[in-house]
Amino acid sequence: MTMTWEESGWEGLAPRAGRCRLPGWDCTVGLVAGEGSALLIDAGSSLREGARLRTEARRLLGGARVTHLALTHPHFDHVFGAAAFAGVEVFGAVGLDGVLTHDREELRADAVRNGLDPGEAAEAADILVPPRHHVSGEWTLDLGGGLQVLLANVGPGHTAHDLAVLVPGSPEVVFCGDLVEESGEPQAGPDAVPSHWPAALDRLLDLGGEGALYVPGHGAVVDAAFVRAQRGTLARRFGVS
C-alpha cells in the first residue's frame, strides 16, 4: 500500500485491512490488501458507486487492482456496484448466484423503493454479476505475502445467503455483512431467516473470538460484547434460543 487508510479517507482496521462507509445507506465496504492480490468486501449500491470504489482502491493499492470480491448477501446496497469490477474473482454463499440471476426485478424494485434513482437501479440490475465461487462452508483465500483470509458461510440469518470474512492478525477483523448492524436495529425483511439468526451470530463470535473487531454492514465497528448483546436481542425478538 502506498498511502495510509486515513490519507485516503478510509478507516484503518489493521495494517492491511480497512473499510469505508458509503453515503446514503451507510453501507460498509471493506478492502484487504495482500501481496499482488486484493479483496474487496461488498461493492456498493450502483455502478457509479462501484466505479468510485474501484478508483479509490487502486489509489490505496498503489496502482494495483482489486482481484477478488466477496459479496456478503444479496441486497442491492451491497451488490449493485459489482459490475464495475470486471474480471475479478467473485465469491458468495451458496445460492447467492440464484438470487442475483432470477430475482433481478425484485432487487431493482427494492432499490427504487429505498430511494435509488430508477435509471441507476435498472442499469445495475441488468448487468448484475453473480459469484463464480460458491462458499458452502469455509474457504481460505491466499492473498499473498502470508495473508490468508477466511470466507465463511455463516447463514442463514439476515438472508438465506450470509457470508462473513475473517482477516487474521492483531486484532483479527470480522466483516459481518448485515448480520450485525450498529447504526440501527437489524433489518429482517421477507428474505430473512429469523430462527437461524442467533446461531449465525454465534458462528461469528466463534470465528473472531473475544478480541476481534466486528465490522457491521451499517454503522461503527463493534466488539464481541456488542455482537453478543445483539444476539440476545434478536433471540428475544424472534422467540428463539
Rank of each mutant, 00 (worst) to 15 (best):
T2Q: 15
M3S: 07
T4S: 15
W5S: 09
S8I: 02
E11W: 11
L13D: 10
R16W: 08
R16Y: 11
G18V: 11
R19S: 10
R19Q: 10
L22H: 08
W25L: 05
W25H: 13
L31I: 09
A38W: 02
A38S: 09
A43D: 02
A43E: 04
S45Q: 10
R48S: 08
E49H: 11
R54L: 10
R59A: 09
R59L: 11
A64K: 14
H68S: 09
H68T: 05
A70M: 06
A70F: 06
A70L: 04
L71T: 00
P74R: 15
H78A: 14
V79Q: 04
A82P: 00
A82T: 08
A83W: 08
A84S: 03
F85P: 00
G87T: 07
E89D: 03
E89K: 12
G92R: 11
V94W: 07
D97K: 07
V99P: 00
L100K: 13
L100I: 15
E105P: 00
L107Y: 00
R108H: 01
R108S: 00
R113D: 02
R113A: 11
N114E: 15
L116W: 07
L116D: 01
G119Q: 07
G119W: 00
E120W: 07
A122Q: 09
A125R: 07
I127N: 05
L128S: 11
V135G: 05
V135H: 07
S136N: 08
D142K: 01
L147P: 01
Q148A: 15
V149N: 02
L150H: 06
V154N: 02
G155K: 15
P156F: 14
H158N: 10
L163W: 03
V165S: 06
V167M: 00
G169V: 09
S170Y: 09
S170N: 12
V173C: 14
V174M: 01
D178Y: 07
D178T: 04
E181R: 02
S183M: 03
G184Y: 15
A188R: 07
G189N: 14
P190I: 03
D191K: 02
P194L: 04
H196L: 14
L201C: 07
D206R: 14
G208F: 13
G209D: 00
G209S: 03
G211A: 12
A212L: 10
Y214Q: 00
P216S: 03
V222N: 12
D223A: 05
A225V: 13
F226K: 04
R231L: 09
R236V: 14
R237S: 03
S241N: 10
S241A: 10
